[in-house]
């Protein structure tokens, strides 16, 4: 698979993983994940792909990317990306 095919595959794979949350929540989580883990060129490539009628993106992935492109990053959805909000200084780890 070439780079673009891989990005489409990755976006669909992320979306599929969040699918149990329902389409709206899954789309937000997918957008959140892509925003936090993809480099700018990858994001630009997938946004460009989104324009193509046969983009190959699943409905959740397409909705996520449309939202990310048009409205920017959503509030943190997955907690996995709330890394900096977590107090890791050991307050709760005594012992």
């Amino acid at each position: 698979m070439n780079s673009l095919e891989r990005l489409v595959y990755m976006a669909n794979q992320i979306a599929r993983e969040f699918a149990t949350r329902g389409e709206e929540a899954a789309a937000l989580a997918t957008a959140d994940h892509i925003d936090h883990f993809w480099d700018p060129r990858m994001k630009a490539m997938i946004f460009e792909r989104l324009e193509a009628p046969d983009h190959g993106l699943s409905p959740i992935a397409a909705r996520a990317l449309t939202g990310l492109r048009d409205q920017g990053a959503p509030p943190s959805q997955t907690r996995a990306t709330e890394f900096n909000a977590v107090d890791e200084t050991g307050g709760s780890d005594a012992g």
Binding site: V86, D87, E88, G90, S92, D93, A94, G95
Partner: peptide, 10 residues
């Protein structure tokens, strides 16, 4: 910290 999450999760 030998064992984590003793009193609460991080």
């Amino acid at each position: 910290t030998p064992v984590m999450h003793m009193e609460g999760f991080v």
